[in-house]
């Protein structure tokens, strides 16, 4: 069968990423575990991303509220503004925007760091120093990205809702207590759980793609730049694909 070169290259890369992911799982379950490096990566990937995630979440909540207000006023449901914004942020906008910011910051940083280590033989140096570089570099980063993104999403949602509270009060007056009561009265378990679960998959996608691109980086410094760039592009696309699948699954399971 004659396949176009682009399709062939796409299928080859998809196969390589699948093999890389399989290797990740097989290496993750085997001792020894790199706990120290995992904790360090949680700090770098999670804690150090908090200022950026927090800032973007705050602005997002504020702007979303201010832009929704005129339409809500037109329909005479201004009092429902906290509930609508709360559901939008918790169910969709919070996880997706946080994941995209995360992909931009962490996906590119992992891609560039591992790519640079690859082309300067640092990964080989680790191997001859009695270290399994895949476990030390890839497993720790992917796990840290997988577990830190949901935490960032929860924190980002809270900061975003606080931004929304300030947005509500720009042209109106709502007490802090009333705002939160309205948000939480209209949120249910089925709003929070699917959003929380899908953020694990978003984090995994960012981690595995960043590591794959960096670990297989070639052609010197040009390749490092390309790895960082393609890590962001591919992980962003995967975030939307996972989001699409998640909504289909929650629909099918009746979690709405």
């Amino acid at each position: 069968m004659n396949l176009s070169p682009n399709l062939k290259s796409f299928l080859n890369e998809a196969g390589d990423i699948a093999r890389f992911t399989g290797r990740f799982f097989s290496q993750t379950i085997r001792p020894r575990f790199e706990w120290n490096e995992f904790i360090r990566q949680c700090f770098v990937i999670g804690y150090l991303s908090l200022p950026l995630v927090g800032l973007t979440a705050f602005i997002m909540g504020l702007v979303l509220t201010m832009q929704l207000r005129p339409s809500m006023v037109d329909y005479g449901v201004e009092s429902q503004l906290p509930a609508i914004v709360g559901i939008a942020i918790v169910r969709e906008i919070g996880p997706v925007i946080t994941a995209l910011i995360f992909a931009g910051k962490i996906g590119s940083s992992i891609g560039a760091e591992l790519g640079s280590m690859k082309v300067t033989e640092q990964i080989d140096a680790m191997e001859v120093s009695g270290t399994n570089p895949f476990k030390y570099l890839v497993v720790t980063r992917v796990l840290a990205a997988t577990f830190m993104l949901p935490v960032l999403v929860l924190l980002g949602d809270s900061i975003s809702l606080y931004g929304s509270y300030l947005g509500v009060n720009v042209k109106g007056s709502t007490s802090f207590y009333l705002f939160w009561m309205q948000v939480f009265d209209n949120l249910s378990f089925s709003d929070v759980l699917p959003a929380f679960v899908k953020s694990f998959f978003f984090g995994f996608a960012v981690g595995i793609v960043g590591c794959y691109k960096g670990y297989n980086s070639m052609k010197g410094t040009e390749g490092v730049g390309r790895s960082a760039n393609s890590a962001v592009v591919l992980s962003s696309i995967l975030i939307f694909i996972i989001d699409l699948l998640a909504v289909q699954i929650t629909d099918a399971l009746g979690i709405n």
Binding site: S116, M117, T120, E121, Q122, D124, A125, V128, G130
Partner: peptide
């Protein structure tokens, strides 16, 4: 552990 390797690019961890 008994064989040292000096890499062409030094391979120091940045």
């Amino acid at each position: 552990a008994r064989v040292g390797f000096l890499f062409q690019s030094n391979a120091l961890y940045d």
